[in-house]
Design a protein around this nucleic acid. Structure first.
Length: 297
DNA sequence: CCGGACTCCTGGTTGC
DNA sequence: TGCAACCAGGAGTCCG
């Protein structure tokens, strides 16, 4: 489940190889990986070949590589996507969906493989549009509705708290809403909520400002820590561009820890179904607080 | 605005 | 050993 740290590891890994590189050939092995490309696969191939990449960028879980000032190659890893840098003659992974041959002025010929088991991820060519908040900042049109992520210099804490307070929903649902705050998925939502001692279904309107601040701080802490450890891998589902696993799975306190003692109080971590996914939490440390909802004006 | 249901999807795991 | 059922969930859409 690639979330912000995993996508950033991929972005950073691609940066030296892609920046300034030119695409020489494209092979589509599975057109379903072009679901978000709003034209036939031939269009994707025709437009990619000859394109020169600029520095890869990221917002939340979306990654894109600008090609000139008007368009970008947008990559979303979905549940199981990987972008691997390979020697041009390296054997192809069985689940490779798209392959780009590139040539870099200093590194020479390389192959960029988009590997994706479940095909929830995708590649697409998209137009760059004004992001809307910072003048001159351009993002792919597919990314425009995605909120800035909490590691973004331009993330507006005050605006986040204000929007959060107006929501009438549970806190985990809000954390997973990429239009409110991006980059957080199931793993880091559970980890941040555990760290902040907040129940996943705590109504957003009942979170005091200090507790909301604590939560955002814990979000940043867990994302930063995971990033420093190269992301979270449970198996071969997530790898960096060199095909290596991250180590953060050894640092998880709640996610996937059902039945294990809570590292804080020793009571068992439990798992419940919520939003069609698992929620892992300590039923003692993370209880719903029945604070009166502030009256709305 | 909100939440639930549904869709996309397949390989690893579990169960018989 | 073989096969079917089950499970993981990011993001978009649709509907009540």
């Amino acid at each position: 489940m690639p979330e912000l740290p995993e996508v950033e590891v991929v972005r950073a890994g691609l940066e030296p190889a892609l920046t300034g590189a030119t695409v020489t050939a494209v092979r589509i092995y599975d057109v379903r990986s072009l679901r978000r490309h709003d034209a036939p696969s031939e269009d994707f191939v025709d437009r990619m070949v000859g394109s020169t990449f600029e520095t890869p960028r990221r917002r939340g879980k979306f990654l894109w590589v600008p090609v000139g000032s008007e368009t970008a190659l947008v990559v979303h890893l979905g549940m199981s996507g990987q972008v691997l840098l390979r020697d041009p003659d390296a054997p192809l992974d069985r689940l490779t969906r798209i392959s780009l041959d590139i040539t870099h002025p200093r590194h020479g010929a390389l192959r960029v493989d988009f590997v994706d088991q479940r095909i929830f991820g995708s590649m697409a060519i998209d137009e760059l549009v004004e992001s809307g908040d910072v003048p001159g900042d351009r993002v792919p049109s597919q990314v425009r509705h995605i909120a800035r992520d909490p590691m973004d210099d331009q993330f507006d804490d005050a605006r986040f708290f204000a929007r959060l307070a107006k929501r009438n929903t549970g806190i985990k649902r809000a954390l997973l809403d990429q239009t409110l705050i991006s980059g957080i998925g199931n793993i880091y939502a559970d980890e941040a909520l555990w760290a902040a001692r907040i129940h996943y279904d705590q109504p957003t309107g009942t979170l005091s400002r200090p507790r909301a601040k604590t939560l955002l701080a814990e979000v940043r802490l867990v994302l930063g820590k995971a990033l420093a450890e190269g992301g979270t891998s449970f198996d071969a589902q997530y790898l960096n561009v060199n095909g290596e696993s991250g180590y953060f799975s050894h640092s998880l306190n709640a996610y996937g820890q059902q039945g294990e003692p809570c590292p804080r109080c020793g009571r068992p971590i439990v798992r419940e179904q919520f939003m069609n996914r698992g929620s892992h939490f300590c039923a003692y440390c993370q209880r719903v607080r029945s604070t009166a909802r502030p009256s709305r004006g």
